[in-house]
Design a protein around this nucleic acid. Structure first.
Lengths: 227, 227, 227, 227
DNA sequence: TATGAATGAGCCTTCATTCAT
DNA sequence: TATGAATGAAGGCTCATTCAT
C-alpha cells in the first residue's frame, strides 16, 4: 500500500530531522555539549519522540555516524570508478577524506565517537553499530582495491601486502586529516599556527611522500610526477 | 631548613598519588567515566583534598597531560642525544611515540583531551596549559631538529621545509599510533583484527615508507627528486 | 479544548505547591536554611521537577517574592478604593503593611532578599525580577496616590513633594514594620522586650506622629480629627 | 608585667587585623560572600589563627558588630554631651545614624546580621552577643535620654512615653537609614532612582516631620512649619 | 601560639530516560 | 505514534571547622 509507504517515508524524514538537529549541535558546541533536550527542541519534536526513534543518546550519535560512514563510503567508491592508475586512486581517496572532514567536521567527530566506543556500551544491542562497521569496512576495502589496482597496473610497489598497506595509509591519512580537524575546531591548537605552515602544503607533501614511498620507479612513476 | 623542603616533597607525593589514581581510572574506565569521587577514594584522600591540589576536574586531567607531555618530551630529547644519522633519529622518534602510547594509553588519552580543549574552557586560568604546550612544543622541536640533522648529514632530502616535514611526520605518526591505541583500548576496533595484520608490521612499513620517501639514498630517491 | 487549560492550571497548582513548601521552610528555619532538597521533599516532588518549574534557587525565592509583592500591591490598591480622606488612606496603608508582615513574615523575608539582590545575580535573566519590581512600584504608587488625595482634599500638608513624602513614609514604615518582624522572628531581639512596650502602641504613636507631622495645622486638621 | 601586657596588646592588634580584613570583604563583596579563607589570607594569618581568635564564623561577624555597635554608641553618647535642646539632640542622633551607615555600610550590615540571628545560633555561647546587646542598648538609652531631656526642657511633647517614643524613632530612622544603605549598596534598588529624589531631602523631611510631630506646638513648631 | 593541610557534609544543578495520557 | 512532565541518580564544587605538628 502507498499508505504504509508514505508512513515509512515520513518516519525517515523525521529521523533525518533529528539527526540534522544533533549534527548542528555537535558542529556548534561539540559532542560533549550534546544533550537530548536541545536536539528535541531543535528538531521540533518532543523528547519522547526522540526516544521513539533512537533508543538512547549513543544510538543517536551512532545514527550520525552511520550517515557519515555511508557518505564516506560512497565518496570512496566513487573514486574507484575513475579510470586512473591505482596510485592516483589512492591519492584521490586521501583527498576525499580531507574534503570530507573539512566539510563535515561533525561527521568526523561522530566517527571518532564510534571508534572510541568501549566494549560495554552499545555494541551489543545497537542497530547502527553493524552498519557503521560495514560502511567503514567498505571504505577500507576501497583503499585496498585502489592499492590492488595500483599493484596490478604497476603504479604501486607490490612488495607490500595490500591490506597492510591500506591500514598504513588509513592510519596516516587519519592523522593528517586530524590535524585539519583540530586546526579548524580547536582554536588553541598551535602546531601549525605558530609557524606559518599551511595544511595544504602539508597535505601535498604527504601525497608526495606517500607517492614517493610506495610508487614503483620507472615510467609510470614518471607520469605521476609529470602530472 | 629541610622542613619546608620535606613538606614540599610530601605535597608533590600526594599530588602524584592523586594523579596516579586518576590515571588508573582513565585506564580502566576511560576518561568519560572519570569522576572526582572515585579519584578521591582511590587516592585515599577526601574530595576536599583533591580540590586542594587541583582546582577542578579539567586541571586534574591537565595535570596528567603535563606528566604525559613531559615524559614524552624527555623521551624525544633522549633520542636526540644518540649519535646516529638524522633519518634514524626520526625513525626512533616514531618508535618512541609508539612505545609511549602502548605503555601509557592513559597518557595519550589525556593528551587528546588537551588537544581537543575548547577555547572557552580552562585555557585562560589553567596553571598547566602553558606547561603542556611547552612540553609538546619541545617534542615537536625534537622532530624538527632530527630532520635538520638529517638534512645536514645528508640522510634526509632537504627539498622539504624542515618544519613542514615535521608537521607531516607528527600527523602521520599520530595516526599510526592512534591505531595502536584503539587496537589496545577499543576492543571492537576491527580494522586490523579481521585480517591478521600486526601493528608491528604496519609500523615497520610506515618506517619503510617514510624512510623511502624522505631518505636520500641512491637512484630511487633521485628520480623522485627529479620531478 | 479545556485540556490545555486544565494542564495549565495543573501546572500552576504544582508551582504553587512548590512555592508553599519553600515558604514553610523559610518560615520555620529562615531563608538561609532553605535548600532545594527539602523544598522538593516537602512539596512531594522530585528535585528534578523543582528545576522544571524554577530554573534555580534564586528564582524560587523570587517566585515567593512575586506572590508577596503582588499580594501587597493588592492590599494597597484595596485601600485606595476606600472613600476616606487621604491622610487616613495613608494610615491604612501603614496598617496593612504591618498586617502583611505579621501574617506573612516569610513574604517580608523574600522581599528583603529581593531588595538586597546584587547586580550580578539574576537581575538579567530572571523571569520574576521585572514583575516584582512592577508590583513594588505599584504599591509605592498607591502611597503616592494616597498622599496626592490627601493633598487635594486638604488632609495632608502640600508643602511636601508627594513622591518624596511617599519615600519617607515608605522608609519609616518599613523600619517600624521591621521591628515587628524581628520581634516575631528573632527571639533575642530585645529592644522592646526588656521594657514592656507593645508594638501596638508604638505603631499607634507612629500614626499619631506621622499624622501630626504631616497634617496641616488649624482647621483642616481639625476636620480630620472630627471625622 | 609589661610582657603579658605587650602580649595582650599584640593579641588585640591581630584580632583587629582580622576584623578589618573581614570588613573589607563585606564591603567589597557582601556578607554572603564572606568566607574564612579570604579573611585569613587578607589578614595575612593562617586559617588556624583565625579560629584561635574567633571560634567560628558567626563570632567573627559578631566581632565586627561589636566594633560597630561600640562606635555607634560612642557617637550617640557624644551627641548627648552637646548643650542643646532635647529635640535637637534627637535630630543629631538621627543624623549621626545616617552618617554612620554611609561611612560604614559594612558595620550596618553586621548589625543587621546580629539583629536577625536565630535563637539556635550563637546566642548561648557567644562572647560577643552580650557586648553587642549592651552597646546597642546604650545607643538606645541615648535616644531615651535625649527624649527625656527634650521633655524636660520643653522641646519635646511629653504626652509620649519616652521609651516608646525612642523605639518609634529608632525604628523609623532605621528604615530611613536602610534606604540610604540600599541606595548605596544595591544598584538595582529603584525606589528613589526612578524619580530624582535625593536622600538628603528625604532625610531633611524626615527630621521636619518627626520634629513637627513630636515637638510641642507653639513657637518652635511654628518655625518648623514656616520654614 | 601558630600553621595550613585535611576533612566531609552539604548543596546546587544537570540530564538521560521513563511513562501516563 | 506523540507528548512532555516527572524522575532521581550522579557529579562537581564549596567551605566551615578540626587537628597534628
Amino acid at each position: 500500500m502507498g499508505t504504509s509507504e508514505r508512513k515509512e517515508r515520513e518516519k525517515e524524514r523525521k529521523k533525518a530531522m533529528m539527526l540534522e538537529a544533533a549534527e548542528k549541535v555537535i558542529l556548534e558546541k561539540g559532542l560533549d555539549q550534546l544533550n537530548m533536550d536541545e536536539v528535541a527542541s531543535r528538531a521540533e519534536v518532543s523528547k519522547g519522540s526522540l526516544y521513539l526513534y533512537f533508543k538512547n543518546k549513543t544510538e543517536l550519535v551512532l545514527g550520525i555516524c552511520e550517515k557519515a560512514s555511508k557518505l564516506f563510503a560512497e565518496e570512496a567508491s566513487k573514486v574507484l570508478t575513475k579510470n586512473l592508475p591505482g596510485i592516483e586512486l589512492v591519492v584521490m581517496l586521501g583527498q576525499s577524506f580531507l574534503n570530507f572532514v573539512r566539510e563535515h567536521p561533525e561527521y568526523f567527530r561522530s566517527m571518532k565517537f564510534f571508534d572510541n566506543l568501549k566494549e560495554s556500551e552499545a555494541l551489543a544491542d545497537s542497530e547502527y553499530i553493524v552498519r557503521c562497521q560495514d560502511n567503514i569496512q567498505n571504505s577500507f576495502t576501497c583503499m585496498v582495491r585502489a592499492i590492488q589496482i595500483g599493484m596490478q597496473d604497476g603504479s604501486i610497489n607490490d612488495d607490500y601486502d595490500p591490506r597492510e598497506l591500506a591500514v598504513l595509509l588509513w592510519g596516516t591519512s587519519d592523522g593528517i586529516v586530524n590535524l585539519a580537524y583540530m586546526q579548524q575546531n580547536c582554536p588553541h591548537y598551535e602546531l601549525m599556527q605558530d609557524h606559518q605552515i599551511s595544511l595544504e602544503s602539508v597535505f601535498e607533501n604527504y601525497i608526495k611522500l606517500i607517492g614517493g614511498g610506495i610508487a614503483t620507479d620507472g615510467k609510470k612513476n614518471k607520469k605521476i610526477n609529470d602530472s
